[in-house]
Amino acid sequence: MNLFASQIIDGLADGAIYASLALALVFSYRSTGIVNFAQGEMAMLSAYLVWQLMAWGMPLVPAALVSIVISFIAGALLYATIVKPLSHASLLTVVSVLIGLYLALNSLAGFLWTYTIKALPSLFPKAHLQFGSFTVSAETVGIIAVVGIVLLLLYLLFETTKVGLAMRGAASTPDSAILVGVSVPVMLLIGWGIAAALGALSGILVAPRVFLNPTMMFGVIIYAFAAATLGGFDSVVGAVVGGLLVGVVENLVGTYIPWIGPDLKIIVALVLIFGTLLIKPDGLFGRKKVVRL
């Protein structure tokens, strides 16, 4: 029973990381209808940035915060320079450009920081917390807490502030939003900024567990894709629930189905994605797409 409970908790911690990256995907998808294939590589660069700032003598927490802020700016810049000009391009062009960006960013990290792995310290102490009969590592609790707080802040931003309302308007009905005086491009800019910042958070949280290297986000982005697909690509709640579900399922399958084991866990993502798309293409929480002819 203890093993089961601790697998669930670990799954939730993994899931929280997937959820933040899935949320990043959802934010860019909701605002511009684009699945950002390069999101994982951007997150990887953000994690490297933290390492670089620390190498220059900055303590961990400020370095992480600075990296998140810079990622926000970089995400906004990416929207303004590359994504916005593509708003009327064909799907093939959009996908190709994002794949190009993915390849370029991946190599850029290898070029700047080489392909040897580096260690990024964890934000949390190495302690263990005792809850009755079983123990949880501080990192697990910390990850869940940090992502939880960030989600709460996002919720407050969207539900209680004017900017949040404007952003929701710009994402759901851009034409009407323009009519009531919302600057839609600026809102989309902020949306892509938030997406990059969330990605940075996931990168910084996952880096201590897998070590820094240019391919470190491979194993995360695939589950984030699965989470976003499962939850519905246009649903914020869906991304969070999807992320947590994927994290828990992945851990349970890896532990309890010996045939799959830890090496083949990745197949969970594949099955979830194809299963969702076949059975309920809009995801658990996604809105049904209606096309006006």
């Binding site: 190709s96 190009g100 960006l101 370029a104 290898g110």
Partner: peptide, 18 residues
């Protein structure tokens, strides 16, 4: 020339071609 140049060239070529 450099190990990482290949990916950079690929990415760049993709975007520039389009």
């Amino acid at each position: 020339i450099d190990v990482s140049l290949g990916g950079l060239v690929f990415g760049g070529a993709l975007i520039i071609t389009l």
